[in-house]
Structures are given as structure tokens and as C-alpha cells.
Computed example of a mutant assay.
Amino acid sequence: METQAWEAAQRWLADQGVSRVRDGWVSIEAPDVLLTADQVAQSWAGGVFTEDMRAADQVRLAFGLLDLLDAYWVTCEMRFADRGPEGPLPADALWGGYRRRLEADRDAEALTYSLWVDWFEDRGTAATAFAEVLGNDIDRVVAEPSEALLRRARRVLECSGPVPWPVKEPAYRTAVRLPALHSALFGGLRASYHDVHGDLEPAAASALLDRLELPADTEHFAELRHVLAAGHQNHYRSPHAWDEAVRTGS
């Protein structure tokens, strides 16, 4: 959590008449109504992007709200602003904020969920988003791994199922050189097959799978290997293939 951003967001909410209490949040308009962090985000986060300040400062304030509330909806408002008539948002502020928080030793579920269902599922944003959060510096991650860089890489790989295969394959091929990323890469390959919008090329994915150093009892490894070897691209295009792999013990 970036302390200054968190504190700035708390001050900004106070200016909107919203304050933290023991079990949640209250607004000056309805002080007897206890609000959840999600309710605060849905009611006030969008207001950040109407503030009379530089766009980069709006983004920093929005990330402060995310640090404070840990609410997925804050990321939605960032995306709306980036894709809206006043967008795009400054890339350094937007993606730098994502990268730093993906590297932090704290929960990042709101961020990874937003990458998965918003940025990565949208073919109009998937390539840029994946490049910014991992693709552009996967070589550095593998060559000079640190706990922070590995944490970011693992989180991105595991939610990268919807990213188009031609976009993510170079990063996957680089990641396979580092055993510390093999478990996360397996998660990415499995999601690439199982996600509704998952994308992979069976032969290339199968070749990567064969290079992974994983525990012998890794769940679903054999089934994934079976369906890829059979040339299946996605669970929802071949709904019975996985069941068949499970039934045969492949």
C-alpha cells in the first residue's frame, strides 16, 4: 500500500462527507446508514475523474482509493475514464500503478480480477494491458528475478487466460525458462483452456506444458495434457473433451 496515496484518498473522501467508522463507512448525508467499502466505491469513485486536477493526479488518487477500499469497482472507474471521451489516461500513471501494486506483498485480488475480466477479455485492450503489466519486461523478470517481480509475474500469468495467444506466447516462452514461474505458467495455460474467453494454440501450449517442472501430483496436469494433445483449443468449444480425459484417467 502506498501510504501517501491512501492518505490522500481518505482526505478526499472526507471532503465528500464520507468517513470511516468502526464497522464500515458513513456519509454526512445519512450518518445512520453504515456503508461497505464497495458501496463507497460505487457511489464516489467516479467522482475522482471529475476533479479539476491533472489526469495523472486523478489516477494516483483513484489508486489511493483502491488502496483504501480494496474494492474492484475503483478499477472499473479507472477503465471507464481510460476508455471514455477524456481518455486515455496517462499510461505511466495507470500501468505504473498496476505494476507497483501487483508487486506488493498484500492482497491484489481486485487488480487481478480487473485484468482478467476487463482489460484481458477485451480484444481492444488485451495486448496493451498484458504488455504493460508483464510482456514488456518478462525478460528482466527472468534474468534478474526478485520477490517483487516474481510476485507480479505470477499474478499476471495466472489471470492471463483471455489474452490472445499470439500476444502472450512470447512471454510464456520466456517464463518457462524460470522454474520459479512454472506453477503460475501452468495456471495460465489451464485458464487459457478453461476460461470462457480463454485462448491458446494446442500444439504450442502442449510443448510448453511438457517443459514445466511441477510436482507429480499437480491437479489437472494429465487432463490438460490430454486435451491439448488431442488438439482442443477451449473447454467450451469441446465441452466433452475434458470429461473424457477425466474418465480415462489421462
Rank of each mutant, 00 (worst) to 15 (best):
L209Y: 08
G84C: 12
E121V: 11
H182I: 11
D107W: 12
G187L: 12
L102G: 00
A8E: 07
W242N: 15
V117G: 04
W95F: 14
S43V: 05
F80E: 11
D243Y: 15
E2T: 07
E213H: 12
R151M: 06
A108V: 09
L66V: 04
A41S: 02
A62M: 02
V142E: 03
L209E: 06
T128V: 13
A203W: 02
Q4V: 10
E132N: 06
V142G: 04
G124I: 10
P179W: 05
D52G: 01
D217V: 12
L69K: 00
L178K: 12
V196K: 15
R79D: 09
D52W: 08
T112I: 11
R152A: 09
Y172I: 08
L94Y: 05
F80G: 05
A148W: 06
T75H: 07
F80K: 11
Q42G: 02
E29P: 01
S19I: 03
Y193F: 10
Y193T: 03
L228S: 10
V48N: 01
D243P: 13
G87I: 06
Q58G: 05
D139W: 05
R177N: 13
V133L: 04
A205M: 13
H182P: 06
H232L: 15
S19P: 01
W95M: 04
M53G: 05
L94Q: 03
E223S: 11
V167T: 14
I138Y: 04
V156T: 03
A45Y: 00
W116N: 13
R123H: 10
D210G: 14
P85G: 12
L134P: 00
S19G: 08
T112E: 07
G24K: 02
T75A: 08
G124H: 06
Y236F: 15
A129K: 02
L13W: 00
A9G: 00
L65R: 01
